[in-house]
Nucleic acid binder design. Structure first.
Lengths: 187, 187
DNA sequence: CCGTGATTTCAGAACTTTCTGAAATCTATG
DNA sequence: CATAGATTTCAGAAAGTTCTGAAATCACGG
């Protein structure tokens, strides 16, 4: 590996974090490299930069494309495929959230739904099912919220984030207004 | 393993999902078992229920305690430690978010901060640093928002979730009201 | 402060994942 | 449609992890 020190640190860090994020070292490094690269890179560029085998890079790119985190980008007059990351970080966030949900949440949601359809055959099963219902309820709320929020344009989403916990004040204000209106109508 | 079928399916599913969630099979199964169990279980109960070695259970419980996902609960007149999961699912969600942030986000945030302090030594490094700044900015916003939101009581949080994307309508309404007030003051 | 039973630690076995180089496959020309 | 370069596949080697049983440690009642 022979990279500018800043880039190298970044790439190595992503490699190390990879396992915590559910991807392997090489995949993490490839992503990091593409993320900071000023231009799309081809597989051989990546081999040179990271010092891993050609086939490993091929597999890594495959996986990153499956995650929609890396896109092929054609470079005119070059037969080789080149790759980049989407450059809008918000877009990256969306992709990441979507993929993680698909892999980490959806399967559990569907298993829970299935188990909740069954009739419990004992007190123990009845209790277990009640617990599963609680879990299902929570996950369901969260995913519904997520489905709502992901449709917002970036600008609105950013505004919402910036607002943070202060949304609740807005909520309170709303309740008050609604209360007032109701009060007037009822009187 | 000899469990009521409903419980068994749930436990096996958590075992399988474990690897996607960054824990191993046994840890996933132990958690699932404790989650649906109507009373705290001791290590030997878990050994019997899951059919894994005593030491494996010991390590699993250790890890789950480190995650704050499992709590020791003393049972009177029994020397053995017993364990449960916190029973409020919202509480579980909070713990999970906190721990994942600590393990998956914070280290990256601090590496990014460090790398952003350095002076780029080339155009390539300058570009890389700009990209890192974008990433840092996004993560920073997200974590700030998270720090805000996690302080909300469960009830408010639930209300906010239920509101979903409709918050934006509230935002629009607010902007309008603020606009009105401003208009009045300025006239 | 000994003995008993609960719990943890740890070295290595079993298993899983990751990585490589060689061979196979694909693809765009001339 | 042959060829040269690019890319992918794949079997097995290397590395990493999870799991076990045996031994060590701990902790409490007598």
């Amino acid at each position: 590996m022979n990279l500018p020190p800043l880039v190298q640190s970044f790439v190595l860090h992503f490699g190390e974090m990879g396992s915590r994020w559910g991807i392997n070292r090489t995949v993490g490094q490839i992503y990091a490299l593409l993320y900071v690269s000023p231009r799309p890179l081809c597989a051989d560029d990546i081999v040179d930069a990271l010092g891993v085998s050609r086939s490993n890079v091929s597999m890594g790119l495959r996986e990153l494309q499956a995650w929609n985190l890396v896109l092929p980008k054609h470079i005119p007059d070059d037969r080789r495929d080149h790759f980049t990351t989407p450059d809008d970080v918000w877009q990256i966030l969306r992709v990441l959230a979507e993929e993680r949900k698909k892999r980490e949440v959806d399967p559990t949601l569907s298993v829970l739904r299935e188990l909740l359809m069954q009739t419990p055959g004992s007190e123990e099963e009845r209790h277990a099912q009640a617990r599963m219902a609680e879990m299902h309820g929570l996950i369901d709320r969260l995913t519904t919220w997520y489905e709502d929020v992901k449709r917002l344009e970036t600008e609105r989403l950013a505004a919402l984030l910036a607002l943070g916990a202060r949304v609740t004040r807005l909520l309170e204000a709303k309740d008050k207004v609604v209360g007032l209106v109701r009060g007037r109508k009822e009187s």
